[in-house]
Design a protein around this nucleic acid. Structure first.
Lengths: 211, 211
DNA sequence: TAGATTGTTAATCGATTAACAATC
DNA sequence: TAGATTGTTAATCGATTAACAATC
């Protein structure tokens, strides 16, 4: 696929549009103007039209946007029109929670395999999937590849495991370890830094108005 | 506390500075210049100096920054110099994972109470804390207040529970439900939308260079 | 003191908003 | 057709970067 140069700010807003359009579908709304949507989402109508036009003219003058069509088009832009298989690396509290989560499946992200290095965990079955020995990570992922590796491991082993999944051919990493991974150009990483999130909450809490 | 008008972009970068300074402390580095740090963090030295000067002159001309001092000052800015008590609302997979997580405690965020509405869960003990009946949420939190309410509940009940914790006097909400909460001006909310994160990963994966 | 590096002002760049012509 | 609303260009605003005087 081509056209890079779309700013990160635009991309960050896409899932939010997608979410609001989903709500509109559930409400049974067929069409919406950028003005109405902007009112609902608390952004400017200009921003909505600018954002959407990075990806194509999804609206119609005098009419607005067809909700279902726009939802589906944004879904395609986000790559949600095809399923994504995931391997969870590290079956601790978070790994388990992600494995059991139902929200991801509804967007066609499904867990295909799970790995851990703890003998007490290897062989256990979670959500119908048997946890494999992380020692066989590379060979196993080469045999049975996944789209996404989910790293839910302590930060001191995250870099080494990232290298291994890349060796096995994984191109996308969802990193929950509290460290930054160095990866080749053609590998994408999305970090979930919960501690950072908590710190922002702490900041906003201590700088809350009239405190 | 005063001085608002500090941009959200700056605040988002603070935890990252904090993290890097922590690494430098572990490495035993005493001082660092904005140029060195910028090189390490892959940002401009200008940005670092601008960001830090929003909060005070933490450096010294000709010398740079004292790593420990800067770390501690950013900690204060983030409000990490005081402990934060948390109540976890919703003891599902995620609630449990957060309750058992050790990373938060190391930054002085500790779980004080837990609530659920499922009779099978109420009364159970997790990490030494007994899960209380969510029916008593408001009275219990009024008696034994917390700084932060962690919402790990399905999205259809999140809004109602947010109202309840606000009624009980909670001022800060860490929201894991996949919906946007409407709260009064003086309440702060930090959202963790894992599905959005996964969608960004999906976007970047499908628009990966030379795919 | 001379050298280094900050704090801060000025210049640039990019993102957001406003305006309006195109068009359904 | 007339009215509405988009797609898109132009104007504004804010954030990032560069430059440099202040100073340790």
């Amino acid at each position: 696929m081509k056209d890079q140069k779309i700013s990160i700010a635009v991309i960050r807003r896409l899932p939010r549009y997608y979410r609001y359009l989903n709500i509109l579908i559930e409400e049974g709304t067929d069409r919406i103007s950028s003005a109405e949507l902007s009112h609902r989402m608390n952004v400017t109508a200009s921003q909505i039209r600018q954002d959407l036009n990075h990806f194509g003219g999804f609206g119609q003058q005098g009419y607005g946007y067809n909700v279902k069509y726009l939802h589906s088009e944004i879904g395609k832009v986000l790559g949600l029109d095809k399923g994504h298989s995931m391997a969870i690396i590290g079956i601790g509290n978070f790994g388990k929670a992600l494995a059991r989560n139902k929200d991801f499946a509804s967007n066609d992200f499904y867990v295909k395999s799970m790995f851990d290095s703890d003998p007490a965990v290897i062989g256990r079955e979670i959500s119908g999937i048997t946890v494999q020995d992380a020692a066989h990570l590379v060979t196993s992922l080469k045999e049975d590849p996944v789209d996404i590796a989910v790293l839910t491991v302590p930060k001191d082993v995250a870099a080494a495991l990232a290298d291994k999944v890349i060796e096995a051919g994984v191109k996308a990493i969802w990193n929950f370890a509290h460290c930054e991974l160095e990866v080749p150009d053609n590998i994408v990483v999305e970090n979930v830094y919960l501690v950072d999130s908590l710190m922002r909450l702490s900041y906003n809490d201590s700088h809350r108005p009239h405190k």
